[in-house]
Computed example of a mutant assay.
Amino acid sequence: MTRTTITTATTDNPVLGFPPATPAEALAHFGASLAFHADVSDVAEALAAGGDPGFTLVDTRSTQAWDQGHIPGAVHLPGGRIPQLAAELLDPARPVVVYCWGPGCNGATRAAFALAGLGYRVKEMLGGIEYWLREGFAYDTADGAARRPADPLTAPVAAEACGC
């Protein structure tokens, strides 16, 4: 969102050197962010609830990466194959949530862009498979199901959910 006024830094404080957005600007910005993103815990909760989660989860990584580990129930659609395979694998009336490796990879962003260009409603799962694994959720590999313990720096150790 473009700020409606131009301000200059008025303090040596690195946090407040540029004033925070107005509440209306913040509402628009963060509302847009939530429209474009889902977090790992929310995706896990929706999938674990049983029944139809209301979206299709798509892993956009290579076949080698998929075989190494992917989220159970995800559809495998490598990003470079979206133009050829999306119509075959995805229902255009159903929202799509895409993921790739993790925060250092923009493959899911590119996939979301490609799917949106084809008319799909799409969200990106923040953190990708990296944070799925770090939060201790189960995953499938070419050799079967697996699970790692949660990383205590990314997931609550003694609670079902983080409370956010």
Rank of each mutant, 00 (worst) to 15 (best):
Arg3Asn: 15
Thr4Leu: 09
Thr5Gln: 12
Thr5Val: 15
Ile6Asp: 14
Ile6Phe: 10
Thr10Asn: 05
Thr11Lys: 02
Asp12Gly: 12
Asp12Lys: 05
Asn13His: 06
Pro14Glu: 06
Val15Ile: 02
Val15Gln: 03
Pro19Ile: 11
Pro20Asn: 02
Pro20Arg: 05
Pro23Thr: 01
Pro23Lys: 10
Pro23Leu: 04
Ala24Glu: 07
Glu25Ile: 06
Glu25Pro: 00
Ala26Thr: 10
Ala26Leu: 12
Gly31Trp: 09
Ser33Thr: 13
Leu34Ser: 12
Leu34Arg: 14
Leu34Gly: 11
Phe36Gly: 07
His37Arg: 15
Asp39Asn: 15
Val40Gly: 03
Ser41Met: 01
Ala44Thr: 04
Ala44Arg: 08
Ala46Met: 07
Ala46Asp: 07
Leu47Ile: 08
Ala49Phe: 00
Asp52Glu: 01
Asp52Pro: 04
Asp52Arg: 03
Thr56Lys: 02
Leu57Thr: 10
Leu57Asn: 11
Thr60Cys: 15
Thr60Leu: 14
Thr63Ile: 06
Thr63Tyr: 03
Trp66Leu: 02
Gln68Val: 00
His70Thr: 01
Val75Trp: 03
His76Ala: 10
His76Leu: 13
Leu77Gln: 06
Pro78Gly: 01
Gly80Glu: 08
Gly80Cys: 05
Gly80Trp: 02
Gln84Ala: 13
Leu85Asn: 10
Leu85Ala: 13
Leu85Val: 08
Ala87Phe: 03
Ala93Cys: 01
Ala93Ile: 01
Arg94Gln: 02
Pro95Val: 02
Val97Thr: 15
Tyr99Pro: 11
Tyr99Thr: 08
Tyr99Val: 14
Trp101Ile: 02
Trp101Cys: 00
Gly102Cys: 05
Gly104Val: 03
Cys105Ile: 06
Cys105Ala: 07
Asn106Lys: 02
Arg110Phe: 11
Arg110Val: 11
Ala114Pro: 05
Ala114Gln: 12
Leu115Met: 09
Leu115Ile: 11
Leu118Val: 01
Gly119Ser: 00
Gly119Met: 02
Tyr120Gly: 03
Tyr120Leu: 03
Arg121Asn: 09
Arg121Asp: 11
Leu126Gly: 03
Gly127Trp: 07
Gly127Thr: 10
Gly128Ser: 07
Ile129Asn: 01
Ile129Lys: 07
Arg134Gln: 12
Ala138Pro: 15
Asp140Met: 15
Thr141Arg: 09
Ala142Pro: 04
Ala142Met: 10
Arg147Ala: 04
Arg147Met: 10
Arg148Ala: 10
Pro149Thr: 06
Asp151Trp: 09
Pro152Arg: 14
Thr154His: 07
Ala155Ser: 14
Glu160Cys: 06
Ala161Tyr: 13
Gly163Gln: 04
Gly163Cys: 13
